[in-house]
């Protein structure tokens, strides 16, 4: 069975919410709520909540980055100092803890930030996961609901969309 896409644009966010609710309760064949994607100019937690739980895993990357950064940082610095041929400076111990902790702290933050952003990119499924239909008015002030479903279910979905005064419904072949 071939899958197809349709995108409905709304200017009223509450209508968009009602459309999602109706999609949810319609119980259509060949269509899952997981295939509904909300596209909006700003974040709408109240709308995306309706789509069901879609967990974010960025925090775990952050944790891994923080742990990695601090442990690897300290080990690298201390072992570099231990192997440096001209080691003795100013009577300080060769592996002095306070300076090493300062640098470890910075590396903890640096790797933490990198891993967090990496986690986000993975969450966005970069590179190259573009959802197929997009309209530039979404970045302006419209909310879009993109649905992926079996080709024969698309008309029913469009019907539900049409009940909530959409601005436009865009199919894969254009409008």
């Amino acid at each position: 069975m071939s899958k197809a896409h349709t995108l409905a644009l709304y200017s009223d966010f509450e209508e968009a919410g009602r459309a999602i609710q109706e999609l949810k309760s319609a119980n259509l064949q060949g269509f899952k709520m997981d295939d509904v994607i909300l596209k909006s100019p700003i974040e709408h937690p109240e709308l995306s909540e309706m789509l069901g739980s879609r967990p974010v895993y960025v925090q775990f990357f952050t944790l891994a980055g923080a742990v990695l950064g601090s442990s690897i940082g300290f080990t690298l610095i201390a072992s570099a100092q231990a192997n440096f041929l001209v080691q003795i400076r100013g009577g300080r111990p060769i592996v002095p803890l306070p300076p090493d902790l300062v640098i470890t702290y910075e590396l903890f933050i640096l790797i933490g930030v990198f891993m967090t952003v990496l986690g986000c990119f993975i969450g966005w499924k970069l590179p190259g996961n573009r959802s197929p239909i997009y309209n530039t008015s979404i970045s302006e002030d419209k909310v879009g609901i993109l649905v992926k479903a079996e080709a024969q279910t698309i008309p029913q979905i469009n019907e539900i969309f049409n009940r909530h005064q959409p601005l436009e419904i865009i199919g894969e072949q254009g409008r």
């Binding site: 974040e43 709408h44 986000c120 969450g123």
Partner: peptide, 11 residues
């Protein structure tokens, strides 16, 4: 590739 999808916003 920002399209303002819910997944993008949440992350």
């Amino acid at each position: 590739g920002w399209q303002g999808t819910d997944r993008q916003w949440a992350n």
